[in-house]
Design a protein around this nucleic acid. Structure first.
Lengths: 129, 129
DNA sequence: AAAATTGTTATATAATTGCTATAACAGTTA
DNA sequence: TAACTGTTATAGCAATTATATAACAATTTT
């Protein structure tokens, strides 16, 4: 899987990496049990510092996407705690939902938008690169 | 409407204000045409600096929620550009959707979550305080 | 056994961001 | 005139982001 960072983005580099890896898992390019590149390898590959990659991995561990193993590095391992995940998700979408209400975007249209985004991810499963 | 900031939060103060004002508009506590407090008044009220409030207002203007008028201060004025708003919303929920797919949360359950959050906001319309 | 690679930890530095403080300005309102 | 508005400017401080080295113990590889 290809990972890149945009040095002109106002999003922190470690967050860019985090997001791309989450999308990678969601689309099946990275599977449970897979090992991510070592912090040094990935750092060199995308031309950033080792610690920036390490921070991305640490965030992914805290969010329950990987386990960090001294032997195997960062291994994709999805946490099972659905209740926590659901609560976090509700908080993540809260502001977006408030904006929708402000703009008079109805529930049906929100569903349509959600499906658009969701399907764009889910239907890309199993495809490579 | 009551505005507060949490100094222990890891969310920036100006973002806390921004979010509360967006929720205020969404729930009808603040209506189109209403004036927000002056930057100095609100700053004193929540015990923060004038410029921090100003930044919140500036963000709200950039996002199309208010217009800044030297005479009337910050007036709630919703931008009409739906296409832009929809695109921004899709970006805002993208990572959350990816996380849902990772966790095996299906579209139906996402709809249920969305409705929960959406209704909690929309159904609070017209109520006061 | 030796060499290389792993995550981890520790400093140090620089740039940026968030927040505050103070001050001043032009325009508006009372 | 006096009091208020948003706006702009400068300065300082703390935290964050990212970098650069360096070293450590544990594990793999050779």
């Amino acid at each position: 899987m290809i990972l890149r960072v945009d040095f002109n983005s106002d999003e922190a580099l470690y967050m860019q990496l985090r997001n791309q890896i989450i999308f990678g898992i969601a689309t099946g390019r990275i599977r449970e049990g897979d090992s991510l590149p070592s912090v040094r390898q990935l750092a060199e590959y995308v031309s950033i510092n080792m610690h920036t990659v390490n921070k991305a991995y640490t965030v992914l561990r805290e969010e329950g996407f990987v386990k960090l193993d001294r032997r195997k590095g960062a291994v994709v391992a999805l946490e099972a705690d659905r209740k926590r995940v659901v609560e976090e998700m509700k908080e993540e979408i809260a502001v977006a939902m408030a904006k929708a209400v402000c703009r008079g975007i109805g529930r049906e249209e929100v569903h349509r938008l959600v499906d658009e985004v969701y399907d764009a991810i889910a239907n890309r499963e199993e495809s490579e690169e």
